[in-house]
Design a protein around this nucleic acid. Structure first.
Length: 152
DNA sequence: GCCAACGTTGGC
DNA sequence: GCCAACGTTGGC
């Protein structure tokens, strides 16, 4: 059964336009250093799962694109890169700690801002809107996906 | 295993 | 820049 996900990216690092400009509009979801978020990518995501591309830590946080999971899980290369801010000296190549998937952007949508999301009753119980939520990757219920993306 | 201190996230 | 909320660390 296909699953759906909301994945946060800081547009200063990788915006939806950056992703669209990449080959095949596909980017590796690097830099996740939270176990719960990692586990979603490593254990639960499958090829072609739906992705809501979300901009965070910016002027207008919100959902700006629709995409899909475009790879199986593999080790995040930045954990072994000493020059990367995501370098993890405790992680060993023979037993990588951080796994990621590739995400392909399929299309942009007009920014569905956090404010607009909160204003829509049918989206009120989305995990990402829960008070204190800091997870950069959250599962999205099918009803919420349909309310945002429609039913193609 | 507890929990205080510390660090990070992310909206505002 | 502020700070609430939460995750991680490390001493005990």
């Amino acid at each position: 059964m296909k699953k759906y996900w909301l994945m946060k990216s800081e547009p200063d690092e990788v915006s939806v336009d950056d992703a669209l400009a990449a080959p095949d509009a596909t980017v590796p979801w690097t830099g996740v250093r939270n176990y719960q978020a990692r586990n979603f990518m490593r254990d639960q995501m499958r090829m072609d799962d739906g992705v809501l591309f979300y901009h965070s830590s910016c002027a207008e946080p919100g959902i700006v694109g629709i995409g899909r999971v475009a790879s199986t899980p593999y080790p995040d290369p930045t954990q072994f890169d000493k020059k990367s801010p995501y370098h993890d000296p405790a992680s060993k190549p023979e037993q990588p700690r951080w796994m990621l998937v590739d995400v392909q952007v399929l299309r942009k949508i007009p920014n569905l801002t956090l404010t607009q999301m909160r204003a829509r009753p049918e989206l009120a119980d989305m995990l990402v809107l829960k008070r204190g939520n800091r997870l950069s990757i959250t599962p999205v219920e099918p009803k919420h996906w349909r309310a945002i993306v429609g039913n193609p």
